[in-house]
Amino acid sequence: MSDVTVAESKLVTKQLPEADIVGESPLHHADLASVSQHGPKEGGVYFHERKLQGLLTLRCVPSAEQLSQIESLLGAALPMEPLTSVTTDAVSIRWISPDEWLIIVAGEQAFDLETRFYESMTGHYSLVNISGGTTIFDVSGSQVVNMLKKSTPVDLHPREFPVGKVVSTVFAKSGVTICRLEDDKYELVVRRSFADYLWLWIQDASREYGLVVKA
């Protein structure tokens, strides 16, 4: 596999350096590792930065042919129902809009996925690596819904927001994509430049419940 594919239709480039250069996630400066070591171990809200993942935006109005190509490339069918998601060990797929999905893989697999898409996908689509511009906050705990209710206007009641549902919405004065992973665990996909603000916000909103940082 070449590191750079400048071809007729689109450009795919490897973006990760060799392994000895370690990436810095958007919350690198917050040193969450030592916070988790020295901070509280019990509380109502748990916070974890799932960092340096491979995140890609897929834009497509898939034909039947493309759907089956995508399914074989991702190893999972594209969720076509609005606000749904698919999570497997290898890949997470989040419905974002009728022609947009967020794909989450291990950090080092993003380029590989882009390359394979480039090699075998036909028709009109775009797959864009946004790994550097995005990070994931996993928030959980018995009071996590109350923390979220201070932050987003979306209805989080289990009747309205079952496990697996995904919404892009307002979060404080920024925006996030929320996916409910488990009964009391949510994934927040946030933009790099807003990560510090959102981290501050979550600390503040969790204060009365007790915040636990997990490395």
Binding site: P82, L83, S97, P98, P153, V154, V167, T169, V170
Partner: peptide, 12 residues
Amino acid sequence: PHCCEYREEEEF
């Protein structure tokens, strides 16, 4: 009509 549910005005 794309997300197929009601949302708050602040999202729009």
